[in-house]
Design a binder for these strands. Structure first.
Length: 825
RNA sequence: GCGCGCAUAGCUCAGUGGUAGAGCGUUCGCUUCACAUGCGAAAGGUCGUAGGUUCGAAACCUACUGCGCGCACCA
């Protein structure tokens, strides 16, 4: 056989990938043998927006290790892949494309635009499929899903209808986070905060002065508020003040409310119920009027009078100028505050009142006596879901406690259309499949509208579907069970749900993980997964977030092409613990490429030296001390690696394997094998075992070597390493004597090498030495040949005890009574 | 403001109450016939600071310092 001197991943990975897929073993239905235990995972679906990044590579790496380990350990193993339509994110990308073409979604119209987005998403999906394959992920493509698939869309509609039927989805006018650029609402979690330098304007309001960063909302003020205990302003509470302003005299009521911090600023605030969450609450408590002066287009409304039509920014400048002219500005200070921006396009958020759909998280579920929030909290508190690392459960509870009703309607076009239809109630007979009719109130509908909520469109004429779509996280919240066929009672659902492990980045704990728990406990009455494993973010070598604009992005596919998929994956596993961010550099990947080559060459050595027809023994027969030692170490390694993987200590498992493979196996045992000879069977045994143990971590290389091994040795258990049985992890076997003996030999060899170097001997010229060994006498005599070879001595004698010989140039003590002495040449 | 994390070799990081570890880098010597993507040898540490618990602490507890993150506030 003609083996290259260095491992060339590029030449083998695609062939190996094809071999696996042709086997069909990624599909658990095809796995051989009786498999009573089940292991299942849903791949967190990448967004259908483009390409995979290094964060995806972490997730694929961790999950593939778990999938391959369990498959080998004879679990019925399902790892279900798919993609997320990622509503706003994907729509934004396509809108940007259209903009460069001088077009827009409005220009195309809803239908044509959606076709365009779908074409884009389809293209992304096929890119992503190729990338998942290239990284070696053993996902079951026969079960691939997409959040907009018909089946999943049915699940989305079904759960919406159920929630509505339980009174847990409602429609109402509330202050929402509005992104004027996306022209859509956002949930609280989709808002990010950017520290921003701005101005703080001190404005005179009759007898008061108060500060604001948003003078333009002055037009929407309907009251002033002070703290109930603030003595300074007590006499004004309940009074109505006539205040001079840019739009003439306005009447403002003074109310007392606990939300006001008397120690901050002047201790008095203006209340703009239509454009601030806190003010809206104050407004509700005091039954204040609400005046919307900013519209969904980010421009001032007709209510803003002379300023109607201006953007918020323009209005602010004009209003400040006008206030200054009227002498109503006391001072302007520089001020840094947190600006709310859209997490998808960084546009400043406008809080404004809007008619939207919400999920009620604090309302009892009929017949269950608990709220969605309680179900989701209990799932973790009870231990039904195990969070790794554990500290994230605290963060989860904190978030749950503070969770408000979830705004689920979005005014974008790409996504699941809200399964609600309206029509003028004018004597039409009720539709046959009407689930529920209700009068709804709201600005968009007349009071006579009839509402239909159902999975299928209503029969009959005159129904118009709600134009809005659902929050993308609403559909991904169903991912673990919608992908398995829910709401049908499928075999897959029964077999694979709850899933075993959900592995994802901690950055989507709230967006996704928490919502999956909410939806699964609500709809199925069971947890979506038993363990959540949260990995950290991958940063660049300097600890900065990777981003295109910084130009510090490490592309996992590029790295895989350069250093191999195995090295790339391993670089994301080793030296990292769950939940901890990691710094990644190309040097680290190159280092693991070097290790790949080491493993390759260990096998190469075996293939080149082994007699044809060697059989891998079922039970190895050690002949020498080194044999006993390596087998002992191999058993211990097997035991420890198995325990590490079971406990999700993947980094530790990888480090152990690397240390054993490089140091103990390659540097010591192989060198000894060259000396002692006649180790074909033992070597075959050790090497096939480490291929098995390494397989989850380095699937391509190990499978490649397995296939080569099949040409050289007999007795391999399976044609594909992919389904080779994981070795039974017997209780740890200790053999103190072998350990101590081998360690002593090692220490003597190392000491001799050190002395040789200290003496300045050329590595090639043989040297002469003497040892006093005391209790190790017999051992060192027995291993004399080995020690002489490894330390390159042509003469070496061992005695029980004695003084350093006069012609010894260098001496060393290894332990009490054990010394080595090197003679001058 | 509340909460969480991190601080260990020059760098990046593991570390499970019992003799301080790895990779990279550094120094010295080697084309030793599996591998220079390599081999051999070595140097390098007050485990952030101060207390405490313990026979014994890098680890457990308390306080503090520095860095980072989340949430809340943000008039």
């Amino acid at each position: 056989m003609n083996l290259p001197k260095a491992y060339a991943p590029r030449d083998v990975e695609s062939n190996i990938e094809a071999l696996w897929e042709a086997s069909g073993f990624f599909n658990p239905d095809n796995l051989p043998g009786k498999r009573l235990k089940v292991f299942s995972m849903a791949l967190p679906p990448p967004n259908a927006t483009g390409v995979l990044h290094v964060g995806h590579a972490v997730m694929l790496g961790v999950q593939d290790i778990l999938a391959r380990y369990h498959r080998m350990a004879s679990y019925k193993t399902l790892w279900l892949p798919g993609t997320d339509h990622a509503a706003i994110a994907t729509q934004n990308v396509v809108e940007r494309e259209l903009a460069t073409e001088g077009s827009s979604r409005e220009h195309l119209g809803r239908e044509a635009f959606l076709k365009r987005v779908e074409a884009f998403a389809e293209n992304s999906k096929s890119t992503i499929r190729g990338q998942i394959r290239a990284l070696g992920a053993s996902v079951d493509w026969s079960r691939e899903r997409y959040t907009l698939d018909a089946g999943l869309s049915r699940a989305v509609a079904e759960i919406f209808v159920r929630l509505y039927g339980d009174g847990l989805i409602y429609r109402g006018t509330r202050i929402v986070n509005w992104c004027p650029r996306c022209r859509s609402t956002l949930s609280d979690d989709e808002v990010e905060y950017q520290p921003t330098k701005g101005k703080l304007y001190y404005i005179k309001y009759g007898p008061f002065t108060l500060a604001t960063v948003r003078p333009e909302t002055k037009l929407g003020d309907t009251a002033l508020a002070v703290h109930p205990n603030d003595k300074r302003y007590q006499r004004y509470v309940g009074k109505e003040l006539q205040v001079k302003s840019i739009d003439g005299e306005v009447t403002l009521k003074v109310v007392a409310d606990r939300a006001v911090d008397p120690t901050f600023g002047t201790g008095i605030i203006k209340v703009t119920p239509a454009h601030d969450f806190v003010d809206a609450e104050i407004g509700a408590r005091h039954k204040l009027a609400s005046r919307q002066v900013i519209g969904e287009d980010g421009r001032m409304t007709k209510q803003a009078g002379a300023y109607a039509g201006f953007t918020v920014k323009e209005a602010r400048e004009k209003i400040v100028a006008e206030l200054q002219k009227l002498g109503l500005i006391e001072k302007i200070e520089d001020y840094e505050h947190n600006l709310s921006v859209c997490y998808r396009c960084a546009t400043p958020i406008e809080p404004l009142p809007s008619l939207q759909w919400f999920v009620a998280v604090n309302k009892k579920i009929p017949g269950r006596g608990k709220t969605i929030k309680q179900l989701a909290t209990d799932a973790v508190k009870s231990g039904a879901i195990n969070v790794v690392p554990e500290r994230f459960s605290k963060i989860y509870f904190h978030w749950m406690r503070n969770l408000h009703d979830w705004t689920i309607s979005r005014q974008i076009w790409f996504g699941h259309r809200i399964p609600v239809w309206y029509k003028k109630s004018s004597g039409f007979p009720p539709a046959p499949r009407l689930r529920r009719t209700n009068k709804v109130q709201g600005s968009r509908l007349s009071r006579d509208d009839e509402i239909y909520v159902g999975v299928e469109p209503p029969k009959g004429d005159g129904w118009k579907q709600d134009p809005d779509t659902l929050d993308t996280w609403f559909s991904s919240a169903l991912w673990t069970f919608s992908t398995l066929g829910w709401p049908d009672k499928t075999k897959d659902l029964k077999t694979y749900h709850p899933t075993s492990v959900l592995e994802t980045g901690y950055d989507i704990l709230f967006f996704w993980v928490a919502r999956m728990i909410m939806m699964s406990t609500y709809a199925l009455g069971e947890v979506p997964f038993r363990t959540v494993y949260l990995h950290g973010l991958v940063r660049d070598g300097e600890g900065r977030k990777m981003s295109k604009s910084l130009g510090n992005v490490i592309d996992p596919l590029e790295m895989a092409a350069k250093y191999g998929a195995d090295a790339t994956r391993l670089s994301l596993i080793i030296g990292n613990t769950p939940g901890q961010d990691m710094k990644l550099s190309e040097a680290k990947i190159a280092g693991l490429r070097n290790f790949s080559n080491k493993l390759f060459n260990i096998a190469r050595f075996m293939f080149l030296t082994m007699k044809a027809g060697t059989t891998v023994p079922k039970t190895p027969r050690p002949r020498t001390l080194a044999d006993r030692w390596i087998l002992l170490r191999l058993e211990t390694l097997t035991h420890e690696v198995t325990a590490d993987i079971e406990a999700l200590r993947l980094s530790q498992a990888g480090e152990r394997l690397r240390a054993f493979t490089w140091e103990e196996l390659a540097d010591w045992y192989l060198e000894i094998a060259k000396i002692e000879g006649a180790k074909d069977a033992l070597l075959a045994y050790v090497i096939t075992r480490i291929l098995v143990l390494w397989h989850p971590f380095m699937p391509f290389l190990t499978e490649h070597l397995w296939q080569l091994a099949r040409q050289h040795v007999k007795g391999l258990p399976t044609e594909l390493l992919l389904i080779a049985p994981w070795p039974h992890s017997a209780p740890e076997r200790t053999d103190r004597k072998t350990e101590v003996q081998f360690a002593t030999v090692r220490a003597v060899v190392t000491a001799l090498r050190r002395l040789r170097q200290a003496a300045g001997f050329d590595p090639k010229t043989p040297a002469a030495a003497l040892s006093y060994a005391n209790r190790h006498l017999k051992l060192l005599q027995a291993e004399a040949a080995l020690i002489k070879h490894l330390a390159r001595l042509d003469a070496w004698e061992v005695f029980t005890t004695g003084a350093a010989p006069p012609n010894a140039s260098h001496s060393a003590t290894i332990e009490a009574g054990l010394t080595v002495h090197l003679f001058d040449k």
